[in-house]
Nucleic acid binder design. Sequence first.
DNA 1: CCTTTTACGTTGCAACTGCAATGTAACGTG
DNA 2: CACGTTACATTGCAGTTGCAACGTAAAAGG
Lengths: 200, 200
Amino acid sequence: MPKVVDHHERRTLIADALLRVAARDGLEAVSLRHVATEAGVTSGMVQHYFRTKDEMMHFALGVVRERNEARITAAVTRLGPTPTPREFLQAFLTGLLPLDDASRADGLVALAFLAYAAVRPEAGASLRQDAPQLFAYIADQIRTAQAAGTAHAGVDPDAAATGLLGLTEGLGLYLLTGQTTPETALKTLDAHLAFVFSAS
Amino acid sequence: MPKVVDHHERRTLIADALLRVAARDGLEAVSLRHVATEAGVTSGMVQHYFRTKDEMMHFALGVVRERNEARITAAVTRLGPTPTPREFLQAFLTGLLPLDDASRADGLVALAFLAYAAVRPEAGASLRQDAPQLFAYIADQIRTAQAAGTAHAGVDPDAAATGLLGLTEGLGLYLLTGQTTPETALKTLDAHLAFVFSAS
DNA sequence: CCTTTTACGTTGCAACTGCAATGTAACGTG
DNA sequence: CACGTTACATTGCAGTTGCAACGTAAAAGG
């Protein structure tokens, strides 16, 4: 085995360059040569690590997902060991929002990929795969709170979970397009949480 | 003045072809020649009615907005003369959701344009321009309901308006990506309306 | 040392892109 | 019936695209 290099590291390096290009100029500006120059390598090297452009795109999509996941787990672990369901959800959903520059850039890319995947079923599947568990998990949090008496018993956990996630997604969109401010978004999210959970 | 043709009609014809291409293959598949063949005309004609591709894009974006607007006003006028704020909002927000095939196609295109505009500030402005009035209008509906005693007095009308619109947008996204069903989306929207308004 | 495998770099190509340029036919107007 | 304006169609061009083909250097294994 000659000239050993960390394949995954190289691929991530290239994918990072791709994401920078996408965040700056949009996904349609992503070409082999653009990504290569952005990464400071030759286009031949890009071709060496990704046999096709679609393969590169797919890998980059995975990187975005990983980063988002990392952001959320970071926000949640910052909470401490035993958060209440409401605290947990508040941190979780806030972690989903593009509030700082880094997550904003990722959000823009994610938006571009969403449109990209909307007309490419096979790429869309990769986005959809973990959604059901997410819904179920959030619904469970609400059920737990209901059992503990800290959430209103009247609300349907599943509908509430969909509502919370959908609202977060929508607020994220508004943030990305500049139709609202971080303060308003956070306030709105809190207001919705107040609908689901009992006083404070 | 020779050979009189309805300019606007031709442009709409071309824009419609563009939207079909965009809905089927994504915005990046939109090229002069693709649009021309889809419309069944020559690329020369497309160039005749749009001096540049950006001009064509911008026009098509306007068509999408108009169609959306028409859909909403249709849903609202279907209500009858004196709807309650809740009925009105229910119809309004439901009209925003991509529930049938036609609005779904438009929604996909709108999503693509959103990503497109996210990295093109001048195009983004065209999307943002009517948002503030929309927010204010919805907030006013809630205020009216509060004055009439049909909405909970405790809720902040502005936050609730942002919440309703954001949720609708998020649900629309979930519908487009197939992460939820129309039934669930409508149920979730209803549940959120129930948070804001007093018992049905 | 020598061979084989890997890691690139370079070049080239066919396809496509937006767009300018140029042509032609038709129609209303003087 | 000219004639100028408008409505297209055709062609061409420079730039970009994804990708294949080929080349070279280096390092591990025999």
